[in-house]
């Protein structure tokens, strides 16, 4: 598979006004993520990783800097264009409340195709195959309320990938899962990112989940402070922070 740069940020700064003055929630962050690469964004609470993810998801505008998704600059886009980018180019899973509660698992996944006006027989079949691949063949017609947190997260992963986005973002997808389920979800996510050649970014507090990523970006006080690449370096980082 080709490995092109799917996402690039250049000197992203996001400034907020607080009682004590201006705060840089994201401070001069430049990253590149290639297609087929799965990256973890880690850091303590308040380090700016969720703000960074929101900016990458075109949900929040940065104060300065550039974001290029598939080479297209997002910074100056009007909101209507950003909505289109979110619909076509980005897949998203959230920490909780992921699903549209009145749609079944299959309908939730198909929704991304509907939104992109691409729901045809092939699309429906792909949605079913993807859910089956995620171990949800028996749960396709269940409503979110009839599924466990782990099952809902897997549906969200299917929904994030079904429309072949360039970038897949996951915000703490394992926060509400037990350890076993959490490992399963992230492993499946990582496999699909690699197989489908998407650029994936996961924001997580749980460093054990970094076992499945290709690169770890560590943030602190809004800055990108360290980068870990390669299996051994990542495992060393995970084990080092555990002790």
């Amino acid at each position: 598979m080709t490995s092109t740069i799917a996402l690039e940020t250049r000197n992203i700064i996001k400034t907020y006004q607080s009682d004590s003055g201006l705060i840089n929630a994201v401070d001069d962050v430049s990253i590149q993520v290639r297609s087929g690469e799965f990256v973890a964004l880690v850091g303590p609470s308040g380090s700016g990783k969720t703000t960074m993810l929101s900016i990458l998801a075109a949900l929040l505008k940065q104060t300065s800097g550039q974001i290029l998704l598939d080479g297209v600059e997002l910074s100056d886009m009007p909101e209507s264009e950003r909505v289109k980018i979110r619909r076509e180019k980005i897949g998203f899973t959230f920490q909780s409340n992921n699903m549209v509660p009145f749609l079944s698992a299959l309908e939730n996944v198909e929704l991304m195709l509907r939104l992109n006006n691409r729901l045809d027989k092939v699309g429906k079949l792909r949605a079913q195959e993807l859910l089956a691949r995620l171990g949800l063949a028996e749960r396709m017609h269940n409503l979110p309320g009839q599924m466990s947190g782990g099952q809902q997260q897997r549906v969200a992963i299917a929904r994030a990938l079904i429309h072949n986005p360039s970038l897949v973002l996951a915000d703490e997808p394992t926060a509400s899962l037990d350890t076993e389920r959490a490992f399963q979800v992230v492993e499946t996510f990582a496999n699909l990112i690699h197989e489908q050649n998407r650029a994936g970014i996961i924001v997580t507090h749980d460093l054990r989940m970094c076992e499945y990523v290709d690169r770890v970006l560590q943030m602190q006080d809004g800055k990108l402070v360290k980068e870990y690449t390669g299996k051994s370096e990542i495992l060393e980082f995970i084990n080092g922070t555990r002790h």
Binding site: A57, S80, K84, I85, R86, R87, F94, N97, N116, R159
Partner: peptide
């Protein structure tokens, strides 16, 4: 259903 509408908008449903 604020969060439900939030999800819909986040994944690209227009206002």
């Amino acid at each position: 259903k604020v969060s439900q509408i939030g999800v819909l908008k986040a994944i690209g449903t227009s206002t």
